[in-house]
Amino acid sequence: MDNWRNRVFCEDAVKGIARLPDGVADLIIADPPYNLGKDYGNDSDRMESAAYLEWTAAWVDAALKKLKPSGSLYIFLTWRYSPEVFVMLKQRMTMMNEIIWDRRVPSMGGSTRRYSSVHDTVGFFVNARDYYFDIDAVRVPYDAETKKARSRSIFVGAKWLEMGYNPKDVWSVSRLHREHRERADHPTQKPLEIIERMVKASCPPGGLVLDPFLGSGTTAVAARRCNRDFVGFELNPDYCKLIEQRLAALQPEADAAATVSTPCP
């Protein structure tokens, strides 16, 4: 496959990924269907459990062939299938973190027969010990009060105080409600804040991010905003058009003009 960088391929991920060169991606960000019956304009989120896990293994094996030895994978899941998928991935990679995305869902009703589910689970996996990871790019700044409290001479000039702290494995970032300025017409759109953190930490500048399930295109947008390349796949042609629109809306310095959306055959 030629001219595949910074392109959206509107087709089945497993088939499309097979055409990419091996070992080209620095980072894979995967937000696959959770198999909860969501409407993505097709039946991709409605499978029997065994079929879903078999399909997951198939796309994982296809995608991992495209990852560099120093590469990483982030995968979004829920508690329903994360145990099985994590075990499967541990047979192929090294697990570094289980990240909890607290969606900041307000306490309004919910089931009376179980606890309300208000988080997504994210697995962070790497290929090798020397995987790329830039913690300084994603440090969280300390507030003024914290810096003031650390005013003793032993803290003056301390790198950790000036640059901020390492993000924890619980990420409290609001989901994109209907009125949110980022919100696009997609049922499970992820916030840019989360995806950009992954890109900055785990893909070097000028590197390549692979997303097998682009959905609303947040990974593509985040990659271009962070001066990284991307390649991605999306089955629904309406979402492919949405991604193209979001990329076109980027500022010129994000090189939106270089992106091309390939329509379904």
Rank of each mutant, 00 (worst) to 15 (best):
A30Q: 03
Q245N: 15
E234N: 05
G207L: 04
R224D: 04
I154V: 11
Q251P: 13
K90C: 08
S172P: 12
G110Y: 05
A223T: 11
I99Q: 01
K66E: 00
W55L: 05
A30H: 05
W79Q: 10
V170L: 04
Y74K: 10
D26V: 03
S72C: 08
Y115R: 10
E193R: 13
R19G: 02
C264H: 15
S117W: 12
G217V: 03
R46H: 10
K65C: 03
L89H: 05
C226P: 00
H186W: 08
I154T: 11
T56A: 14
E193T: 11
L73T: 02
D61V: 07
H186L: 06
A158P: 06
G157A: 10
E84S: 13
V87E: 15
F86P: 01
E196R: 07
A220D: 04
R181K: 13
G207Y: 03
I28L: 05
T78S: 11
R129F: 07
P32M: 00
A256P: 09
N227D: 15
T219P: 10
V126T: 04
E253P: 05
A220L: 07
A201K: 02
V14T: 08
P212K: 00
G215T: 01
A13G: 05
G232Y: 01
S44E: 03
S107T: 08
N3M: 04
V105K: 06
T218E: 01
D26K: 04
D229C: 07
Q189E: 08
A223H: 08
I17C: 01
T262I: 14
R46E: 07
A158M: 14
D255A: 12
D185W: 13
P141A: 06
A223N: 09
G157S: 06
V24I: 13
A184Y: 02
A223F: 09
A50F: 15
N35V: 05
P205H: 04
E179D: 15
G23R: 15
D169E: 15
A249E: 13
E244V: 06
P32F: 00
V173K: 06
N97G: 12
A149R: 11
S117E: 15
V231S: 02
K241L: 14
T146N: 06
I100M: 09
F86K: 12
T218P: 05
I28T: 06
G207A: 11
L53K: 04
A249D: 11
D43I: 13
E182L: 06
S107N: 12
K90Y: 11
Q91F: 15
W160N: 08
D43W: 15
R19K: 08
M108K: 15
G157P: 06
V118L: 09
Y115D: 14
R178K: 13
M47V: 14
F76E: 01
S70M: 09
P33F: 09
M198W: 03
C240A: 14
Y131F: 14
R197S: 02
D43Q: 14
S117K: 12
K241V: 14
F213M: 02
R139F: 08
D143T: 10
I29Q: 00
S202G: 03
V221D: 00
T78L: 10
